[in-house]
């Protein structure tokens, strides 16, 4: 599920982070999902087992809110409109709520794989 990413490497280096932050903000704004009331994690493709399992683990409230945001965005897309500016997703609201669950499930699978292919060394 996870694509290779340089985020961690950039975040560790303060000066690089500072330099790239404006670029990142420009990109987020240009992507336009916040103008439709979505969060970044709403855009993750859910057509695979890992994400489906992660969606199962959302709390009922989070799951309901997610569906509401997606339906609202679909409606906006159909009518070729954006939300009024006061309803745009703010930077504080745009938190990763699904990504940690996906990471957890991937870690589980990776551990299972590692243990399944374990070579026992006796000394």
């Amino acid at each position: 599920m996870s694509a290779p990413s340089l985020v961690q490497a950039v975040a560790k280096r303060g000066w690089l982070n500072k330099m790239l932050k404006p670029v990142s903000n420009w990109y987020i704004n240009a992507a336009g999902y916040r103008q439709m009331g979505l969060r970044a994690d709403d855009l993750i493709s859910e057509e695979n087992e890992t994400v489906l399992a992660a969606l199962q683990r959302l709390s009922p409230k989070e799951s309901y809110d997610r569906i509401y945001r997606i339906r609202r965005a679909t409606q906006l897309s159909l009518t070729h409109k954006l939300l009024p500016k006061n309803e745009w997703t703010t930077q504080e609201e745009d938190v990763p709520y699904l990504r940690p669950l996906i990471d957890q499930i991937e870690a589980e699978a990776a551990e299972k794989d590692a243990l399944d292919t374990l070579a026992v060394v006796k000394n």
Binding site: Q104, I105, A107, E108, E111, K112, L115, L118, V120
Partner: peptide, 20 residues
């Protein structure tokens, strides 16, 4: 339980280690 059953290791690891 499955993931991170305890803070230190997962249930799967507990099972496999005790099997070994």
């Amino acid at each position: 339980a499955g993931t991170q059953n305890t803070n230190k290791r997962t249930a799967l690891r507990i099972t496999r280690e005790s099997e070994l």
